[in-house]
Amino acid sequence: MRRMFLRRAGLALFLMLAATALTFAIVTAAPGNVAALIAERAAGAGADGEMIKRIADELGLNDPLPVRYVHWLGKAVAGDLGESLRTGKPMMDEFAERIPVTALLLFGGGVIALVLSIGLGLWGAVSNGGVVDRLLHGAALIGASTPNFFVAAMLVIVFAVGLGWVPSFGASGATSWLLPWFTIALFPASVLARVVRVNLQEAMSRPFATTGFAKGLSRRGVLLREALPNIAVPFITTFGAQFTLMIIGAIVVERVFGLNGVGAFFIEAIRFRDFVGMQAVLTLFVVFFVSVNLFVDLIAMFADPRLRRARRA
């Protein structure tokens, strides 16, 4: 277990390095001159070639790419992700303000996706080919193929504008989170509900399910007691993947609902060619991806007694 954990952690570290290096290279190669941007912001139209060159030298922008990456990495590890070219504030301060917003969005969406998918997947399995099962199947297909912005628009039109139950914009109180949460949860909930349903069905055709019936359990009993624990590993793994993907959804959802999170910041960073901001956000995404996956791998290992034993050996 310890060795397994160290191996996973080592792999995670390597992935973070590779991914940040790649994003660094891509962001740097993107059109736009950082030094010119900074000069413009400092001196307005008065920025001349000399000033730009001086800034570039100061920032080491003329060094070779690997040198610059290592330089950036050293500061990043020390907790300095630079200053946003757009707002001028340290990225760490931006993050301190915005990560809680995004985290709450992802957390709420994740909980909704978790509860909905297990509940609806089980419901479909109980119905087993009945009307409910088929309706849920259809709903999942629709849910998994409707883009976020469209879902958001529909929810806003119905619940905010039409019924006036919740605010349509901004983070003001608990109800203002409901629409963003459901919007961001719809896709993962749809995918995961199918995963639950399909894996339950597969488990129900395995010999241990027959043993469950032989023990005298009802079909519902077999589903809950025998089949459900057996879908733990595929469910946890898919949930992890879906949860990391939700950060992509957050970019759109934060923007649509006027939430001041990391995703909304990222869009602004792109628009203003805020390379420092972009690199910082992408780094955050990479860290999020890798650590969620690491965490999920560990949970899956604990969920399955067969994998758990590997740690004793």
Partner: peptide
């Protein structure tokens, strides 16, 4: 169905060919 379940759980005991797959790996 419920009478049949009770019958299976009470009157009948069943053992299968491959105990490795007939016993729930998670339990």
């Amino acid at each position: 169905q419920s009478e049949l379940s009770a019958m299976r759980g009470g009157e009948f005991g069943v053992i299968f060919q491959d105990p490795m797959s007939a016993l729930n790996p998670m339990l």
